[in-house]
Design a binder for these strands. Sequence first.
DNA 1: GACAGAATAT
DNA 2: GATATTCTGT
Length: 317
Amino acid sequence: MREEEETEWFARWEEHLPSPEELTPLSQTLITPALAIAFDIPIPADGNPSPILSPHFLHRPLPPPASPHLPPPPDFETSDLNSASAASGSGGGGDEPARTLKRPRLVWTPQLHKRFVDAVAHLGIKNAVPKTIMQLMSVDGLTRENVASHLQKYRLYLKRMQGLSTSGGGGGGGGPISASDAATDQLFASAPVPHHFLSRRPVAGLGGPDPFLPYMPVTALQHHQQITAAMQQQQHYHQRHLGHFGSPTSGGGFDHGFLNRPAVSQSGMHQMLGAAPGMGLMQLTPSSAASFVDDLEPARGGSGERKVLTLFPTGED
DNA sequence: GACAGAATAT
DNA sequence: GATATTCTGT
């Protein structure tokens, strides 16, 4: 029956949820040492180098950059990043420090989005407001603005989904959530939308007994394994190149064998980003080194100075 | 003044 | 298109 299905997907989805421990921090400072020096920004070994992020990793025994888990990103050409950022980097000088201090663009990875959805689910769509969501997510460096922005988009997505399932129009026929091939859908599809989100409220006839699914507290979820999430992220990016999402059957699709591998020690990664001056991209990346390589892929080389920031759940909320 | 949500900009 | 920033209402 339907319920069983939901229970099933939920159970599976849950497995993919990142746990704070797995996700643990690894991030990078957004300000490279060079920049820090250039702009006289203090970088305490055990403190906050910048107001941008709270670098747990900073006082964390950072694994050597030569970590076996950190193979040189094939697609990621440091030189490109460097040169690209050179204009805005310390060398470019053209950019003001203010720019450097500017909060970098956050990339909502599937993992991060999962946390987001999870939080929203727990709060209930009605109580899900940026601040609360942010707190529930417990992601270091994540701001209310980040969440608000994402929430805005998420709502639009939900609305769209509702429209599809409600008006029965769109190819949604099969289920409530028929992932389209839009990038957005891929991301959002990576974290199932609780069905009750899609149902426009207890409509007569639907008779949803509970507006809520039995979501377990985030804290509980956090204890789950999540290596899979890392994989999904990787796949997410692969998909962008290879084509589509739902091809678990194909050898290259879902390789659960890989997913089920013992969690890679989160101990080290992301330092590399720090090595890319001018790169302010921030990504919440789970500890799996396996995924970070792909993560680094410059989502958009066009703009030249896109920045990514790596965030991570702190779990200390 | 803080926050949420929407609109607009990058 | 994704995310940030700004604007407006509460």
